[in-house]
Structure formats: C-alpha cells, structure tokens
Amino acid sequence: MSLSSRDLVLGRIRGALNARGDADVIALKQRISSPPRWTRPAFDGDDVARFVQKAKANLSSVEFVATLADVGNAVNAILQFQGTPRDVSIAPGLAHVAWPEHWTVNFGTGRPVEHVAITDATAGIAETGSVVMCSEAGRPGGLNFLPELHVAVLHKADIVHHLEDIWPKIRALPVWPRAVNIISAPSRTADVAQIVVRPAHGPKSLHIIIVEAEQ
C-alpha cells in the first residue's frame, strides 16, 4: 500500500526533528493550555480613552450613547445628515432593540447592496482601537463587510486592554465562532499607484457606538 501524503509529509517532518518522549508531549500540551506570556506593548491611562483615541487615529468614528435603546436614534441622525436611505440591515441578535419605526429593517444576512449595517461587538481592544465581531446565529459575519457604513455597537464594559485579553472572552463562548473578525479601520487599498483609497471591498466608514450602560 502506498503511503498517504499525510503520512509522507509527517514522516519527512519527523525525519528532520529530534525524537520526542512522553514527557515532551505532555510539555507541549501544557504549552497550549497555558502559553508563555510574551511581550505586550505597555500603555497607561484609561482603556476607554485609549480605545477612542486609537479608533479615531485609524479613521473610525466613535460616539457614546447611554443605553442600547439610544443606538437607533444615533444612527438615524447620521442617516439624516448623509441623506442615506433608511434601509438598514441589523444583526438579528439585536432584533429586540426598539429601532426607528420609519426604517426598513432587514434582520438577516447581508445583501449585495447594503447602505448601512448595524452589528454588535463581542469586545473592543484599547491597544489598537479595534472591535471584535464573533459570528453566531444572531450575528451573521457578512454584515460586517457588505455595507457602505458599518455601525459597530460596543458595550463600554467589553473594552479590554490588550489584544490578548479578547481570547478568554471568546474561549468562554458556547462554541468557538466560525469567524472572529478583528476590525480596526474602514476598508482600504493602495494597489493603484500606492494611493490609499477608501473603501476597497468593505465598508467606507466604520462608526463605533459605545454603549455606556451595563448590559
């Protein structure tokens, strides 16, 4: 019987490496369950302030609202200002929120043309000003990438210090999500003559609404 490619490749690899004993395997498993603590960028101050500063530096816009119920009005104000159609896609997990009545709302997956989509974040990262979106039944991942304007709803209490601090939150979810999207800026490209153009394929604008109230 001929060797499977899997066995062949693994065989090539093992042939080049030192033999491993039982103790070594235990140590490797241990390293996965409790990985080394690597260097992390040091920064002081308030995580929320840092988050806002970094997000803005990455050309996202940020605003604060008191409660989740206020998000609709905040978004409506933007749509009014921009003259954007009130045809809004919203993550189904946010269906329980009271949205402006005159909106046409799509609680579903994204469509080829999306003006505005509202999705909610699992976490925010102060280090980089990023929002972290985890796909699940009420959170279709495509909504984060299809709209012109992506509104990310983030609870203030979910802002963590370092990138590493999001992993325990995601590990704590019932199932590991199909997609974890760490979103740090609007979509861009520089593939034409190194000129930065926004957007490329994803949202032109990323608006982060931070909800002050505890969930």
């Binding site: 796909s135 699940e136 999500p177 199909r178 997609a179 999207n181 979509s187 861009r188």
Partner: peptide, 17 residues
Amino acid sequence: SYTTLSTGPRRSGDLDG
C-alpha cells in the same frame, strides 16, 4: 483593517458562512 480567524464551516443556526 481586518484580522480574521476562520474556523470550520458555518455552525448550526448560523445565517451565513
């Protein structure tokens, strides 16, 4: 702008993926 971790196909109940 985007750092994405993809893990397996859509989960049961997922609307896309």
